[in-house]
Nucleic acid binder design. Structure first.
Lengths: 278, 278
DNA sequence: GCAAAAGTGTTTCGTTTACACCCATGC
DNA sequence: GCATGGGTGTAAACGAAACACTTTTGC
């Protein structure tokens, strides 16, 4: 490590070994991880085991080390706290730098967001105090994480308009109505089935899935009921999720094609940033 | 200031008075300020007077203090170094956190960008070592500022598609062809005059300017010739600006209406984020 | 008076929207 | 067999793109 002893030094064995000529601040990362499961958009939260905000839910994250970039630190903390390694890249939301956002000391945080597929979610289950919450039923959050959450939701809604990121939330194989419901859930609007289908097919982003036996939608897997999750009183007292009707078993009328993502076209469309309205 | 003496302390009079239990990093801000003058998009740079990268050009910025948010710090440094106070808000580009981006110590920077009107530019002239460079003739930059510059250009191009930010670069009063040239300069494309005019008028973002005598386009004011600016040899050796033809005096055919921005509609369109293509 | 810039309007074409009927499945 | 969800096509309306002629001004 290159070190400028004019501005700072390291004193091994000292109680406060890192010493600086000028005041420094702590830097943390936080990750807002979204998934789409049981017809609802959900976020990943961890319960804080330490003060401050002990016992409250927060986004996975932690202090950034000096030998890693913000992205590396965010991924490391995410893995440490939830055992999750997203298959799609994490993207920067921005910094949150309110002076008093942490009572201990001045802490600036770099927030990220990422989208993961339902099949990736299982990996997080062995983490002790991590849980998925539907976005319309998140409990009160630690620090200024509600602000971060709002920013993430806004950003997701914008991105989903201009980039085909919805696919990062779906498993390999899905149907067009599945995709449509996802868009409707996130954007909170209804689309015409036929127009949606025509446009999405015309965009060339879908490929017919090879008919490997019976493709199983991850969405229909059994998942831990919301009530079994350890959540704060405030969270349980919230009204039940209205916009996410539960029909886990099967859907009548299922016949239509199964599709997969055309990776190449996906990358192209991501570049172009067309506004997708259905 | 609330201070957690478990993790850090302040020792008055000590050579290195700020002492921490864990390693900390420095945080800086950098501002990419754009303006549009003499038919060209330009950025504001300052010459570094100190090592490292002494003598090189860089974006105005500096260390973030513990008692200010990133936005406040960015504006403070900008004002200190260039005497510029942008009338439109600065927006976050993101953090740049490469581990070795500064040779002295670990420095994470929060980058911002902002758009200023030509009439605001004059205020920066008394700053000793600040200068405006056409975006296609920027000299080599200090640290990883080229990366920041690339990110800013990309962001500006995207934003100008979806938000009516072009107006932040123009003076109060302008003509439609002025506006069109600005869009063409930034996006590097040509539009049909008639379609551009029809669309921009239909959007309702323009108001006819009150005919106060003879409105003077700031673009036509005399400005310091490029050659008089103190720039690095690398910068002068670059080929002349091709995409920015210089006709400063006046344009034949000038007759048409002068317009101003309809603030209310501007805010609305900013929210909507329609893709503007002409 | 000529060249270069700017004002104006219409037609064509493609895309978007709205809408109706039939089929498949589960209870 | 009925309710629900899903597949398909078409006509009308709107917005985008292409395009020509005239007017103004500076040299």
């Amino acid at each position: 490590m290159i070190m400028d002893t004019k501005t700072h030094r390291f004193v091994p064995g000292a109680e406060f070994p890192w010493q600086y000529k000028y005041e420094h601040m702590a830097v943390t990362t936080d990750c807002v991880i979204f998934t789409y499961e049981d017809w609802a958009l959900k976020v990943l939260l961890v319960r804080r085991g330490e003060a401050p905000c002990k016992g409250m839910w927060a986004f996975p994250g932690g202090f950034l080390r000096n030998d890693e970039t913000a992205e590396q630190g965010a991924l490391r903390e995410l893995k440490e706290e939830t055992a999750l390694v997203p298959s799609s890249p994490i993207v920067q939301l921005g910094v949150f730098s309110d002076v008093h956002r942490d009572p201990r000391e001045r802490v600036l945080t770099v927030a990220f967001y990422a989208l993961v597929k339902p099949s990736e979610v299982l990996g997080g289950d062995d983490a002790e105090e991590a849980a998925w919450f539907p976005v319309d039923a998140v409990p009160p959050l630690a620090f200024d994480h509600e602000k971060i959450f709002d920013a993430a939701m806004e950003r997701l809604r914008r991105d989903i308009h201009f980039q085909p990121v919805g696919f990062d939330l779906l498993d390999e194989t899905f149907t067009i109505p599945d995709l449509q419901r996802l868009y409707e859930a996130i954007l909170g609007v209804k689309f015409d089935r036929r127009n949606f289908q025509r446009k999405i097919l015309a965009s060339g982003i879908l490929e017919e899935a090879p008919v490997t036996a019976e493709p199983e939608m991850e969405c229909f897997k059994e998942s831990i009921p919301l009530e079994d999750m350890e959540i704060t009183p405030e969270a349980v007292s919230m009204e039940p999720i209205e916009r996410a009707p539960v029909h886990k078993k099967a859907r009548p009328g299922r016949k239509g094609g199964w599709f997969t993502l055309n990776r190449k076209r996906y990358e192209e469309l991501k570049e172009e940033e067309h506004k997708m309205e259905f």
